[in-house]
Design a binder for these strands. Sequence first.
DNA 1: TTGACAAATATGCCTGATGCATATATGCTA
DNA 2: TAGCATATATGCATCAGGCATATTTGTCAA
Lengths: 249, 249
Amino acid sequence: MTPRDARPADERSFLASYDASAFPHPSVAVDVAVVTIEDGELKALLVRRTEHPHRGRWSLPGGFVGMRESLDAAARRVLAGKGGLSKVYLEQLYTFGAPKRDPRTRVISIAYYALVHPGKLRDIGIESDTSRLATLQVPWAGEEGGRVHAVDERGRKLPLAFDHADMLGLVVLRLRGKLDYAGIGFELLPREFTLRQLQTVYETILDRSLNKDSFRRRMLASGRVVPTGRQEAHVGHRPAALYRFSRDV
Amino acid sequence: MTPRDARPADERSFLASYDASAFPHPSVAVDVAVVTIEDGELKALLVRRTEHPHRGRWSLPGGFVGMRESLDAAARRVLAGKGGLSKVYLEQLYTFGAPKRDPRTRVISIAYYALVHPGKLRDIGIESDTSRLATLQVPWAGEEGGRVHAVDERGRKLPLAFDHADMLGLVVLRLRGKLDYAGIGFELLPREFTLRQLQTVYETILDRSLNKDSFRRRMLASGRVVPTGRQEAHVGHRPAALYRFSRDV
DNA sequence: TTGACAAATATGCCTGATGCATATATGCTA
DNA sequence: TAGCATATATGCATCAGGCATATTTGTCAA
């Protein structure tokens, strides 16, 4: 939509008929869930809040949307601010707009999620006092009070600010839904990977074990996975062949 | 996100550290695609714009989001304004925020889609000078210039305002993706329906024909379709059994 | 140098779902 | 009351997924 439909449709100029300052506008922000898989666990990048509200809690990195900036551009700017994450898979997730989600003023937030493989994330030195990679604990699907928890390396729950737990919960559901459909699994792996690594990504996202043989057959038959001719080295057993993702079909 | 992360984290009160009037905010609107299936065609409710910009073009019904109103509530309010569409399936689709999508000022629009069966829509008297049910012509998936067209009953293209063609395109993709997964097909049918009607819904959304026997077996085996014991009447051939949707698996 | 190891890779079979063809049932209409 | 058009039922071939078993191959330790 755009003009106020309820307005009398007389012949004033469109500038006169739409006065942006005539009523208050909400603030618009983006929040970005940077997700990776490490040691068979889903993890997300969290930053500690240093200001009210929810001071001391953990939140997704975010920022306000500039007046001349697209939503995607705002999300990429937030990513760039977090140590140079560029060229990563980024997709809009959902828009959160409960009137009281921020106690200060009305803030509507467009949530995004980015997928990175753990090596890339560790390279840019994420862990610090105000930034960490938190493990996502996903309760059983549809379970009562099935909210996603973020925990530290010792399993202690990290308190999340605002509705960011809802955002992370939606990320998990979206990943499960798009896993087969789109090439999401590959975004969480380095450029070359073994089928075992790919299966671990699938099993982590789906939170269930998969049949090894049929997984292998299905992936090879899909044509989205092509052998590079190389194989792993120094793994203490027969090395697996390395594959890469093929976008075409 | 919420506070300005770049701000110095000193000890001023949070009210002082966040001045909503210090920088301009975009307008926030919702647009709702009311979708139905009639005569084996996907159709959407369009309204004719009576003001600039895109005066005379067709657009999705929409409205601005109130400062104390959730996004879902805003979308339902828009629906209620269109002749009393309540209790319909409504789901957030995607948020469109290109800086120039509205030439007047920055407007960020959260697109929704609603699913209705055609009887319900016809009952409330949709067709008029400024409102109509337009057929969606969906080009072959991934085809060059694969934009969705809205056409009138004679097949003439209706010009769409803003990025509303993109919105309708996304609706179609979303419907295809969620068709098997969620109970979307049933929202486009009356409370009791035949398996043939359900198959037509599936074929219309997927834009391909399905095997009748396996479709029937699959639906009955899914447990989401239960017989009511009743059957159609006066159809000029053997009447089909009537079924209804069962939410519990 | 060689054998044990651990996981990758290969092969075969069973089962269930889907595609397809054919046969039968049934309310409506002329 | 016969014919019609479509629903419903049954049988079979094909294919993908689940599962078990056998073989292959770098690594590491004796």
